[in-house]
Amino acid sequence: MKGIILTSHGTYASGLYQTVKMIAGDFPNIKIVEFHEGDNLENFDQKLIEAYNDLTYKDIVVITDLAGGTPFNRSVMSLADKGNVAFLSGANFAMVYQALSSEIEDLSEFVADVLEKGKSSITKFDMEEDDEESLEDGI
């Protein structure tokens, strides 16, 4: 299991994690760090470092909403020197759930698996091709 820091602009990270909890339950290996309008960058950096220090896992994966955004950039600036941290962007439900629940030990394989799960979950519904009954099932 890896430690996960989920970070975003606004409340996207906490909202996304609330959805994960609603469907799959609570996970002990996650810390949420959000960047809100008017936040001080140094305080945000400190929150990222505190989240890292609170997660007692061999490897830490930071998942952000947007590559190149403040949460992503500050995460890299604050944590890249730790050596056991990977940085991912484009957070969606599937990738966050996979990251929280995966048992893959190797960090490179873990990251590849999480990214693949996130990408493969992005689909387009086509009423002509998809079975209407599948809409009734839900999760």
Rank of each mutant, 00 (worst) to 15 (best):
A13K: 09
A13F: 01
A13E: 07
S14C: 10
S14H: 02
S14Y: 06
S14M: 04
S14K: 07
G15Q: 02
G15M: 06
G15F: 01
G15N: 05
L16P: 00
L16C: 03
Y17F: 10
Y17M: 11
Y17N: 10
Q18N: 14
T19H: 01
T19I: 06
V20Q: 03
V20M: 01
K21D: 05
K21H: 10
K21G: 09
M22V: 06
M22F: 13
M22N: 13
M22R: 13
A24P: 01
G25Y: 05
G25D: 12
G25Q: 06
G25V: 11
G25C: 12
D26C: 04
F27H: 12
F27Y: 13
P28L: 00
P28V: 08
P28Q: 11
P28R: 06
N29F: 03
N29T: 00
N29Q: 09
I30K: 00
I30D: 02
K31F: 04
K31R: 15
K31M: 13
K31D: 03
K31Y: 09
I32H: 04
V33G: 09
V33C: 05
E34P: 09
F35V: 01
F35Y: 15
H36E: 10
H36Q: 08
E37W: 09
E37F: 14
E37L: 15
G38F: 02
D39Y: 05
D39L: 04
D39N: 00
D39G: 11
D39M: 13
N40W: 07
N40A: 07
N40P: 00
L41N: 03
L41G: 08
L41M: 13
E42L: 09
E42T: 12
E42M: 12
N43L: 14
N43E: 15
F44W: 04
D45R: 15
Q46G: 10
Q46V: 05
Q46F: 11
K47I: 02
K47D: 03
K47H: 13
K47F: 11
L48R: 03
L48E: 07
I49V: 15
I49C: 09
E50W: 06
E50I: 14
E50M: 13
E50S: 14
A51G: 05
A51R: 00
A51C: 05
A51H: 08
A51V: 07
A51W: 05
Y52P: 00
Y52M: 00
Y52I: 02
Y52S: 06
Y52C: 00
N53M: 12
N53L: 03
N53D: 15
D54V: 02
D54C: 12
D54F: 09
D54R: 09
L55N: 07
L55M: 04
L55C: 07
L55H: 11
T56V: 12
T56S: 15
T56Q: 15
Y57H: 12
Y57W: 12
Y57E: 10
Y57G: 00
Y57S: 07
K58A: 15
D59K: 13
D59T: 14
D59L: 08
I60F: 08
I60W: 04
